[in-house]
Amino acid sequence: MTAEDKILPKPLVSVRGLRKFYPAGRRFPWLRSKPPILALDGFDMDIFPGKIHALIGPNGAGKTTLLKILWNLIQPDEGLIESNHLADDDTVLVSGEERGFYYRLNGWANLVFFGRLSGNSRQETLSRATQLAERLRLSGILNRRYQTYSSGERQKLAILRALLQAPRLMMIDDLAKGLDPQATRELTDILLELARDGMSILLATHRLDLAAQMCDTITLIHRGKNIATGSPQKLSQQVFPHRHYRIVLSGDEVTARKILAGSITSDIEIKDGHLSAELVVSDEEELAKLSLTLAQNGISIIELSSLEEELETVYNHLLQDSDSNDG
């Protein structure tokens, strides 16, 4: 058992070697079928309890296929899905689409219908929905017909319906699609709260800013393959192995220039009597050595801040690498 195995809990869901082909159909019955479309190509992934996991990738990468396979609505052709005592109704999928409810019914009637389909009585559904509506700040609108809801209210109602099942894994396809900043913030707050309560959340999204901000783990899927998985920081380090910092110093400029000569990526600026520069080091050890040398030469470090690469830059690099490896 490695040290990492000791730290990580057992995954809630483990996906190994998942492959899925879609039939491409044929134009006429007497013509040969077109080759099938490969949606997932040996996809691997682990989802851990109580964590928010983002699935990012271009359109057609296989995100929705994966979510629907995990929801048991699509049958994989190959591969293994192992879950840690996860029952069928422990998994729910919330779609970012604006459909999925009966337009002529109000919020309560919709919730009661789907609640009863999940095996709960009308009373149980209403009582649970009341509590959840309070928590999601939806109480005021549930008497209105679904057709009058805004996009944000529709997504929140879809989350409320999912929560009626008390799932252990909630999957969201196209998170925050078409939502304004306030509605997005409300939605992300709700998800962070649910994760704090122990729910695992798997988000398929194009919103890289949200993925970087709220997810513990990000998986980049491209052409049906998992091309990178890790925390936003780990992915950044994978693409940019050197660490970038902004350093602000106080002391002699010439000495500082000499010490930092091989490590700075920008010219040293002088601002408010302090020296400021961007620094690149290969690891923490190199940074510690530099700090010590600066201190020994009478230069003190006023500020040291890490300069993380934007997730979008990391994403584009990883996609390009994957394309060039395939090509």
Partner: peptide, 13 residues
């Protein structure tokens, strides 16, 4: 058309 089929079928009816 309404997008309700998948949530309905997920209830294992």
């Amino acid at each position: 058309l309404q997008g309700t089929l998948e949530p309905m079928l997920s209830s294992r009816i």
